[in-house]
Amino acid sequence: MFASCADPSLLSGLDWLACYLTSGKHLDFYRSFGTVLILLAVTAPVALAFGFAGALAARSQLGLVSILGRGYMAMVRGVPDIVFFLFFVIALDQGIEWLTHQVRCPDWTEPIRNGLEFRVCPQAKVPPGAAPQSVHSLYGFGLAVVTFAIVFGAFAANVLLGAMNAVPRAQIETALAYGMSERQATRRVLIPQMWIYALPGLSNLWLILIKATPLLFLLGVRDVVYWARELGGSKTSAYEYPHPDWRLYYFLGLLVFYLLMTRISELVLARISARLSRGQATMAGEAMRKAGATA
């Protein structure tokens, strides 16, 4: 990065360290923190949407929709994450390529499935083979978001379903007695009130999601844990900056990052929890009411 870093073997002490920590590889490492944060920021709302749709479907009066919702929850929750990540992503990727293959190469005669191989015509490759690596990374990132959203959506659906069932029956009955339809009662009474019951479960999922990002490397996206292991491993003189096994320091750095993430999450979740408890017929809501009355 700096001109003085041209020949690291001549450097020592702090100069060496400054050059070492600003090498191209380290910049990639720092960028991967951004990748992880973006992934979390994109995945969490999408997963919540999946969960919401799943929970509503499972509650549906229509038998078929209900079976779909319950089936989604049962299947995804029952499959180990790593199996899901290995199988589903490859299946999704191949499904997309199979579809583009049907559109772009109708005249292709060779078999697509050939033993263990999967081979579509070159024009149907997604992304195209000639695309720069950044496009491939972006595509892998997109697959990761979808997969994370489906997996965590199933867990979120179960949490939300439980939360919907936890809203006191009297609330819905009152709404119906006021002349609201089932649909109106769901939208105006059930959904606004269920969040407080869903929050503990959802916050668990959020914290698990934060730690699940190393699964990204299975999709070819390099996350912080991959880089920490790669950078920390002992380096021989084949590298410009040889050093012994420094994984401990890199993983300590990651520990700080994850603890910070957890702490920030806790602070934000505590605020949300306080906001949602207001006026609720729960112990937290009652405590707030009493505190407000005496003040």
């Binding site: 090498s23 590889k25 084949a238 590298y239």
Partner: peptide, 10 residues
């Protein structure tokens, strides 16, 4: 290394 590795430029 030395067969294949990610160098310091990434």
């Amino acid at each position: 290394p030395p067969y294949n590795f990610i160098n310091d430029q990434g």
